[in-house]
Amino acid sequence: MSAEMVAPAWMRQQVGAEQYDSWSEEQCAGIEIVDGMVVASPSPSPSASKRHSRLARILANALDSAAGPDWNADTDFDVRSQDVPLTNRRPDVVVYRAETIDLTPTRPEHVLLVVEVVSPGSETTDRIVKVDQYAKSGIPFYWRVEQAATGVPIIYTYVLDPATKAYRDGEMFTGTLKAAVPFPVAVDLGTI
């Protein structure tokens, strides 16, 4: 099978910021751009997709309520860490400065926290690659949600060490999240 049969040409060529910004939301859905190249974000199975979406939405709602007026929490939009080569990641949940709601693209300096919900096919990216990229771009907090076989999510939290531009381990929560940083938030994920 040739590459033309598997992926359209626009997915095999380096993409610049101006070109990406001209694409429709439909073209941008389900992809990220890393070093200028389109990377398809794996879609979980239909049942895992519902759980994934629900976890992200519940976390975003809880974070949005707890964050106060200076921060918003939303799901599924780009965070652009660099223009050349273009790198856009699409975290599952983003907590960002409320005053930047109308600014596009969202930049790491606007972001306080990103959350990734790990799904089959995203394990290495969410556990290793994105952790490094988010830390190097200066995002202060990273949370990773693992969907355990028991059905009870496990939440790993990380805090940026600004001197090393690397995350250090924070707290781990099973089922119920009761975090003190970046602001107090509590949510029961064990009922999902």
Rank of each mutant, 00 (worst) to 15 (best):
M1S: 13
A3I: 10
M5R: 15
V6Y: 09
V6T: 14
A7V: 12
P8E: 11
W10Y: 09
R12T: 14
G16T: 15
E26V: 04
C28E: 11
I31M: 07
I31E: 09
E32F: 06
E32P: 06
I33P: 01
V34A: 02
V38H: 08
P46E: 02
S47M: 00
A48Q: 14
S49T: 11
S49F: 01
S49W: 11
R54C: 07
R54K: 13
R57W: 02
I58G: 02
I58P: 00
L59W: 06
S65C: 11
A67C: 01
G68M: 03
G68N: 01
N72F: 06
T75M: 13
D76R: 12
V79S: 10
D83R: 15
V84K: 13
P85F: 05
T87M: 11
T87Q: 04
V93F: 08
V93S: 08
V94R: 07
V94P: 03
Y96S: 13
Y96W: 05
R97L: 06
R97I: 00
E99K: 04
L103N: 06
T104R: 15
T106A: 09
R107E: 03
P108V: 02
V111G: 10
L112A: 09
L113K: 12
E116I: 09
V118F: 09
V118D: 06
S119M: 07
E123L: 03
V131G: 10
D132P: 00
D132I: 14
Q133V: 14
Y134G: 06
A135P: 12
S137D: 11
S137A: 15
Y142G: 01
W143G: 07
R144C: 07
E146Q: 07
G151Q: 11
I154M: 08
I154H: 11
V159P: 00
D161G: 08
K165V: 09
T174I: 05
G175S: 03
A179K: 11
V181S: 15
A186T: 15
V187E: 02
D188M: 05
G190W: 06
